[in-house]
Every structure is written in C-alpha cells, then in structure tokens.
C-alpha cells in the first residue's frame, strides 16, 4: 500500500492495469498458479482427501493383523517390515485420483478457458499434478501415524526417514503421469480408475511388500527383482529401518525419470488432441 493516492471520488479514467506483457519463465509461473488452483480446490472440498486418509489405515490394519503372525511371528515385528514398503503403495494409489479428476475436469468449460489463454499446453496438466502433491503428503502422514500407533519405530534417524518420504513422493509424482495419460485417453472417469488399477496391481503386489522375497515362487522373484516399485520399497525400508539403500535409490530414481520422460510428453500430446 504505497501508491494509493487517488482521490476518493474521481472515477478511474485511466485503466488500473494496462494490457499484460509477456514475461519469461511462463511455464513455471503458469504451472504453479494452476497448481495453487488445484490445491485450493482440494482444501475447499476436504472429502477429496478421505481416500488418502483412510486407505492407508485400512490396508495397514488388514495386513498387520491378518498376516503379521504368519509372516513375522508377531504383529510388532511385522509392522517394522511392512510399513516402509506399504508407504510406497499408499502414495502411488494416491496418484490415481489425478488422472480421474483431470478426466472429469477436462470436459468442463474451465479447460476451454485455459486452452484459450496464451499458456503452455502442458501447464494445466503440470498444475494438476503439482496440486495433488498434497494428497501424497496427507497419505504419508496418515500412514506414519497409523504405523506409530501400531508400534512402528524409525531405526535410522529423522533425516533418513524424511528422505524416504521425499523419495517416495518423487517416485509417485513421476509415475502419476501414467495416470494423467490414461485420464487423457479414456472417455469415462470410471474407466480411468479401472485401467489405473490394472497398471498398479502387478507393480505394487509383485513386490516384497507383504512377504519376504525368499518365500515367493521363482518366476515371481524374478519379477520382484526387476520391478522398480520393489526397489522403491526396499529403498524406503533401508532408509527407515536400516540396510544399504544406494542401489535401490538409484534404481527407483532412474525409473522415475524414465517414466516422466516418456509419459509426460505423451500425456501432453493426448491432451492437445482431445478437444
């Protein structure tokens, strides 16, 4: 408030703001502005966060009490084994909604307006993906809280555990572009959900998430070894309860970048084509 010196009664004869000029770093600014839009929308309708809040609690309870005794001998030991790994599944599942929501939104007039504005074609998509980061954070917090109540304790250190969470979120952020692409290609939101599940199922369950790899049949062990989600889970385990994380981190980050590089451009192309 430094330049408000106009007289109170005079009607504005000159425009308050003149014609906007193009400024640099447009894609970043526009994506952030749209990310903020998506964040506001989510916070105004908190029901949208119900799935990422409840789903980790339910899955964890089911696994811990159903399998805990059989796999680890006690629920206490099992929760140490399960929690860092199920973190990855939880956050990945949280990303499906990005594709579903975009699919619903895209037919609405708002997206027509975005298309008529001088912004990068990818900005509305990047914005949605960025805004949905809140979902990953909520899912992570809900899961860690549940784990804590059930007796999970970080055995490494705060920073290491934080790194596990950040890595997992980066991993999910990159993989969510697969769901964005599906959201652009499929007509119905229900279809997006269905296909996203089909993609996620072998990725999250073909892992050592709920049982140690050694107990699995040979062919499945082979899949677990190459499945990047296994590596993300093992990285999280190593960073939270101890072990060597290096190769697992490299594997999951490498895969994240690859998915991003392939699927983000495909999603943007599909968005351009969809009218």
């Amino acid at each position: 408030m430094t330049t408000t010196t106009t007289t109170a009664t005079a009607p504005p004869t000159r425009p308050v703001v003149s014609r906007p000029q193009e400024r640099p770093f447009g894609l970043i600014r526009h994506s952030l502005a749209l990310g903020r839009r998506s964040l506001i929308k989510t916070l105004r309708t908190p029901e949208q966060l119900l799935d990422v809040t409840l789903q980790p609690i339910i899955f964890t309870l089911v696994y811990v009490y159903l399998l805990g005794g059989a796999v680890s001998g006690s629920t206490q030991d099992y929760v140490q084994f399960l929690l860092p790994a199920i973190l990855v599944q939880t956050v990945l599942f949280g990303g499906m909604a990005t594709g579903v929501n975009l699919n619903t939104d895209i037919g609405k007039g708002v997206f027509d307006r975005f298309r008529s504005l001088p912004i990068g074609r990818s900005a509305p998509l990047i914005g949605s993906v960025l805004g949905d980061l809140i979902r990953y954070v909520v899912a992570t917090v809900s899961l860690l809280t549940t784990g804590f109540v059930l007796g999970f304790r970080v055995q490494t250190g705060f920073l290491s555990a934080l790194l596990a969470c950040v890595l997992t979120i980066v991993f999910a952020f990159c993989l969510s572009w697969i769901f964005v692409l599906v959201g652009m290609l499929v007509r119905e939101p229900g279809g997006v959900q269905g296909i996203a599940f089909l993609v996620l199922f072998p990725l999250t369950f073909g892992t050592s998430m709920i049982t140690p790899k050694e107990t699995l049949p040979g062919w499945l062990q082979t899949w677990v070894e190459v499945n990047p989600v296994s590596h993300a889970m093992e990285a999280s385990r190593a960073l939270m309860v101890g072990g060597s994380a290096g190769t697992h981190i490299a594997w999951s980050l490498g895969f994240s970048v690859l998915v991003l590089a392939v699927f983000a451009p495909l999603a943007v192309r599909a968005y351009r084509r969809r009218t």
Binding site: K41, T45, G109, V110
Partner: peptide, 28 residues
C-alpha cells in the same frame, strides 16, 4: 477473450481467485 456457452468459472474458487488466476496466466 472467450466466454463459452457452458460456464467456465471455477466453482470452488471465489470470484477474486477466479479472476486473479486468469490474470496470472496472462502474465500480470
């Protein structure tokens, strides 16, 4: 500037937020 046949305002955003967003997308 386009006003489409079907409402293109964002229901969850306030009037101000709707217009500020567009201003930002126009590089204001």
């Amino acid at each position: 500037g386009l006003t489409g046949q079907y409402a293109s305002v964002d229901e969850d955003l306030t009037g101000t937020e709707n217009l500020v967003l567009i201003g930002q997308l126009l590089d204001l």
